[in-house]
Each structure stands twice: as C-alpha cells, then as structure tokens.
Design a protein around this nucleic acid. Sequence first.
DNA 1: CGTTAAATGTCGTCC
DNA 2: GGACGACGTTTAACG
Lengths: 240, 240
Amino acid sequence: MSDTDRSSLVAPAPAEAAAYVRDAHERRAFCTLLGRCHVAYDGRTTSHAGPADRLVALKPDLTLLVHAADGPKPQNWLAADALDVDVEDGSLLLTATRESPTEELRVTFESIEQAAAMAADETDATVEISGTEADLKERVLADPALVEPGFRALAAERDTPAGPVDVFGRDSSGRAVAVELKATRAGPDAASQLSRYVDALRRDLHADADVRGILVAPSCTPRTRRVLARDGHEFVSLEP
Amino acid sequence: MSDTDRSSLVAPAPAEAAAYVRDAHERRAFCTLLGRCHVAYDGRTTSHAGPADRLVALKPDLTLLVHAADGPKPQNWLAADALDVDVEDGSLLLTATRESPTEELRVTFESIEQAAAMAADETDATVEISGTEADLKERVLADPALVEPGFRALAAERDTPAGPVDVFGRDSSGRAVAVELKATRAGPDAASQLSRYVDALRRDLHADADVRGILVAPSCTPRTRRVLARDGHEFVSLEP
DNA sequence: CGTTAAATGTCGTCC
DNA sequence: GGACGACGTTTAACG
C-alpha cells in the first residue's frame, strides 16, 4: 500500500475527493466522506433531502449509505451494482445505480470536510447470535412440557398448505396441537398466522379433526389476545 | 474550530484515538473509525463477532454503528444514551450503553487505520418521500372509481374495534366496503388484516351486515390470493 | 409509555 | 428469481 493510500483527506477539492473515492472503489475499500451534501433517491419510492452535514459511507460491496445526525437508520441507502464518481459544476457527485429493481441514489457535495478509506481484508467475521426464535424452538423441542404438561413435540417446521408450523405435536389426551413461536412480544399477525395453520391442519388431518392452536411467546398484545380468543386458541408465555 | 479539530488521524495510537473520539463525542460531531476490531452486543439478544476490518461510526445523537464489508445493514448498532471511551490492554475500547431496554455494545480495536470527525450543523434536513401508502390513499380518495366503477369513499382511517380501516366506503349497490391499501406487493398479512377489519365492521354495523373486503396493492402473492378467496375478499391492482 | 401498522424495510431459506 | 417468515427489525402515529 502506498503512502497516498494510507492518507486521509482534509477539506479536499472536489476533483481530489473524486480521485480518492474512485481509488477506494477500485481497491474495494471502505470509504467515508464527511461533508455538506444533498441527496436524491429514485426507485421503490422517490425521495429528496436538502443540504445538510452528513456522513456518506461507501462499502467494498458498493453499498452506499447516507447518514444524517440522528437515528440508527441511514437517511438514504442503496445496495448498488455500479457507481459513478463525477465532478459537476464544481461539486463531487456520487451516482449509485442498481438494476432489478431499478434504483438510483445521487449524492451531491457542496463541501467535503473529511475523506478516509481502508482496504478491507477477506476475513469472514460472521456474527453469532443467541436469544432468537430458533433458540426458543430448540428449548421447546428439548423440553416440550414447557408448553404444557404432557405435551409431546412430534415435528418442527411441519408442512401444511398454509406454510410450515413451527412445532407440531399432541397433548396428553392425544389431540393434535399446532404451536406458533415468537421470540419477542407477539402481535395480531402471529395469531392470524396460527389460525391459518390450524385451519390447514384441520383440513389436512381429515374432516373436522380436532386441532388446538397455541401461541408461545414472552408476551402478547391485548388485541392479539382477542384474536386468539375469537379463534379458540391459547397463549403460553415463554422466553427464548 | 482549531487546527487539531479539523485533522483526521492516520494509524493513531490507541490513546490518541481515544482522545479524538472523546473530543468528537463532546462536540456532538460525526466520527468514523476504520480499523480491525471485534464486537460484542448484549441486550435483546446476545451476539459476538470476531476480529475483522470494519467501519465504526459514531453519530452526534450517540448512535453507534458497526459495519462489515458486506450489506446495507450494520453488523451491530446501538442507539445509546451513554458512551465510554477507554484504552484497555493497549486497545481502544468503545462501550455504548442504553437503559430501557438494557443494552450494551462493545467495540474493541486491534488496530486503527483512520479516524475522522466533523461537527454537525443544526440543519434539519428532512427527507421528502413519495410513492408510499399515504400517496396511494390520496389517489384512491381523489378518484374512488380506481377501486371499482361506482365506488364511493366515505372515510379514511375509519375506526373499528380491530383497528382503523384504510378506506371505508360503499359500492354502486350501497354495500359497505372495507379497503386495505399496500404500497408494495402484498403478502398474507395484508389479507389477514383485511379479514379482521371486515369481521369487525360486520359486528359494528349491525348483525349480519353485508361488508365487502378489497385489498388494493400493486400486486399480491399466491398465498395471499388463497387467503382472500377463503375469506371471500377481492383484490384490485393499483400503483401508488 | 404502550400499541399498532408501515417500510426503499433487510435477511435467510426454500422452492 | 420469487415467495415466505424472522428480525436486536426501526419508525411514525395515536391513545
């Protein structure tokens, strides 16, 4: 890596910044720009944001992110498959594009305070996560009595015409049970999902088969309770 | 702003970087760090990611973002309400914390290639977006015949015990109609939502009132079609 | 502060 | 490549 590569730029001229970003792009490096810019997006929706100080980040995979001062979400972003770096009317202009869906993100800088870049290594640093719905499923399969005494888990991801049921089993009296799992507080969608699965199982297992539905989650909202009650299903509180 | 404030750092020592980040934090500036680090999160779940080259960004509102080389989403993030900047065992350590919910994000740098910062102005640069569900609603209210000839829109966001119906109206023969809008391709949840509203309206308007349900979206998935058919509802294709 | 529904959601997985 | 459901979803609107 040359000395130039290792340097960042302070208050660069647009042409200098353009060369820097192009170089970063070619090296598949991270690149950050801090400065005043305005932003236009056109694709799934259309948006425009006026001039303000922002953080613009270009990632090795051509993801372009535009962050304003507030909030964890970027104001605009694009997982692009092409990037143009130009100087227009004396301003640095980044144009990121993507096909399928057709999208375009344009960032125009009025001024640039800082530019930095770093070539990324090839290390695959996957994130290990625990405490998810998959963990809750493992818990239930390992100890089905957590759902209710006498419950036997017979299958995970059991297929139905309405989609896979998280856990399928039978209660102590032999009745079929569909279990829908949520790792976080459950909303009405979870209850609707459970109803679809139970209906499908009733048809699948044979006419008027007796199928119970149980929603398992740390908690659920009141409206979810009402949907469950309306459809004759139950709720069991369980942490992942 | 002093000369030091305007400078970025190239390959700084941990203590130097720590002072730089603390200063940025105090000035409520954007700050970016490019370097090799590992990351640990504990809160809603627990996660850990081993050493790799990453982009770490600190925003004026104390949002901490950790980006790996791929993908538009940060690998880890935290909308923090406190940040500690320390040097431990010769490494820069950022510890962002939040209460309610209790969360912690720790970033430990093995090496730092670049650090940059920029104080943010106070400009409130809101993003103007069009092509959303709100736009689709305006379209339907302005020209209800887009839903079907003779349709009259009587209310937007009409309240029901199951929540507000996007558009409520009557068809050419006077039958009540609930319209559920989606700006993008609709999935099964949209059909379930519609069913809940129609059921609530039937009870609300009087026993066995005749209420039609129409899902309006650019398109919908096959399973969504089946849910609509099962519940006797309809689909109308319309762009926002 | 809790609940609810939208989102340029994004991401993995399976077909 | 589409469909489907999870996600540390985040965010805005409303009571």
